[in-house]
Design a protein around this nucleic acid. Sequence first.
DNA 1: GAAGGAAGCGGACTATGGTCCGATTAGTAC
DNA 2: GTACTAATCGGACCATAGTCCGCTTCCTTC
Lengths: 200, 200
Amino acid sequence: MTDLPLHPLPLLGDPPTERSDAARNRESLLVAARELVHERGAEAVTMDDVALRAGVGKGTVFRRFGSRHGLMVALLDDSEAEWQRQVMSGPPPLGPGAPAWERLEAFGRSRLQTTVGHADLLRAAGASGNRSAPAMSFVVMHVRHLLIQLGVTGDLRLLSTALMAPLEIGVLDVLRTEGIDTERVIQGWLDLAQRIVAGG
Amino acid sequence: MTDLPLHPLPLLGDPPTERSDAARNRESLLVAARELVHERGAEAVTMDDVALRAGVGKGTVFRRFGSRHGLMVALLDDSEAEWQRQVMSGPPPLGPGAPAWERLEAFGRSRLQTTVGHADLLRAAGASGNRSAPAMSFVVMHVRHLLIQLGVTGDLRLLSTALMAPLEIGVLDVLRTEGIDTERVIQGWLDLAQRIVAGG
DNA sequence: GAAGGAAGCGGACTATGGTCCGATTAGTAC
DNA sequence: GTACTAATCGGACCATAGTCCGCTTCCTTC
């Protein structure tokens, strides 16, 4: 066989082999959506806008992302991925190398900043605040990991979820309404984390 | 003056004097909406449906409640009011009379049940999970009150918010997806509460 | 490189949330 | 009871999320 060319090689069931034009369109749509959201805020971007700017039909947008929420989640996942890289392999104290408590502190701060930074996208994305199963899963897993290092025992899955819950956009919106600023939120969160860790 | 009849007496600025037909319509609309939600679930109820069943025009629905969210929130507030009564003056341990820790425990359980019971309404109501400023405010105030009695010090507003955040519908939805049942959630929540109280 | 079939495309179409304004009605003053 | 005003009503109208299906494009196979 002179040709041992690239078989589809769909061994990894992950990206279910997207056709080239489909991949191109997905990329165009993400770029267009990101630009529009950046220009005028998530609230003011319609699906027709996105389709028009990407130069594709409206049907394509929905086939790719399923819904408005889906599109927003896709946008979020991009930034989320970058953030996850910093947590997994960036410089300490957010990345590995610092003592667990310092990492936890940096993690909370960073998470809060990220959430606030993407507030409008998160509101547009989630029927229930934000979530995106994988994104939330990563957060909980990491906190769980740090709590273990800090000697915490118990139902760590729930404790981790509970520790991160106050930093979700829905809760932050309420606090913001009451005039509580970011720094105070962080201080309160650190207090909570300390109590959890102290509980053993 | 033989007539000392009922002046409007708008001394209390609270209910801004609603015209009788307006009041009647509001009532019809709430009843109609409640019935429809009960029959087919919040998701499947359209504003036109509500207007039709209440026998009023669509415009009236929006003038009264502002939006779909507003209508759902109004429905929620009814049940919420009943629940608040039980907390404030019902039998212990949820109502007054029991030791603070038992009241807190009962409060968490009850709140969880209520939230789960109104899950679909809450999802339909809140862009950000649930909230309804007054409802959330009541919850936080009460927890704060109990935490004080339990000798907790610190930024109680934030601690209270953080303690209740894991019981919001958005978080519960995620946990449910992961196959975590209600009882386990409660146990985890009690653990969290204990750690907060133990922290002093 | 031609043919065949499947995946993907796109824009007309539908459903529903939300707005607007002329017609109507409750409440007030005489 | 009548006239007057302002609040309220209601349904036609608009914008946008989401669906559908005939047409096009890509990829494979020979």
